[in-house]
Amino acid sequence: MTSYNAALAEAFREHRDVLYRIAVARLRGAGLQGDAQDVVSTAVLSLMDHPVAAVTNWRALLIDVVEKKVVDHLRSAWSRRRDGREPKPDDVKDDRFDIADAEDEIDVLKAIQVATDALNALPEPHQTIARECLWHERKQNEVATALGISQPRVSQVLKEAKNMIASKIEESGVTR
């Protein structure tokens, strides 16, 4: 018979990579990806303080609780910013390629997998440019210099690559 806290600890160790990926992806739009550890810790503490009876799928439970804590954290941050207690971070980029509204239900983990697979299947030069700009978060002018092409060309190819990846995500049905 496995005790609740021991099972929780072992499930967390097995799935923590996934939990952090989801937290980072969901927090980044508000510039709060640096809070991922705090959010995941708060989720764990919540599960310890309020044990769930007869857990059949620890992975699904952990993901669910982390996603709820992300929303709580975003709302709390929004409230602090509204009251002027916290400035809006300046690292939220304006050139974001939105794939789902906040109100949409989205399987973030599956979306990450589909996006990664789609990136790996892109033709060249789209794959290289998308990998540099999206995965490594390098600036377009740096990539242009490295590849010996113009920045507008990088921008054009990146836009095409994003459209191709977004199409794959839409086809996969991860957003409802």
Partner: peptide, 13 residues
């Protein structure tokens, strides 16, 4: 709440 963008998915990955 902020929308989810492609850039967010890759940051998570």
């Amino acid at each position: 709440l902020p929308a989810i963008a492609l850039e967010d998915l890759f940051a998570g990955a």
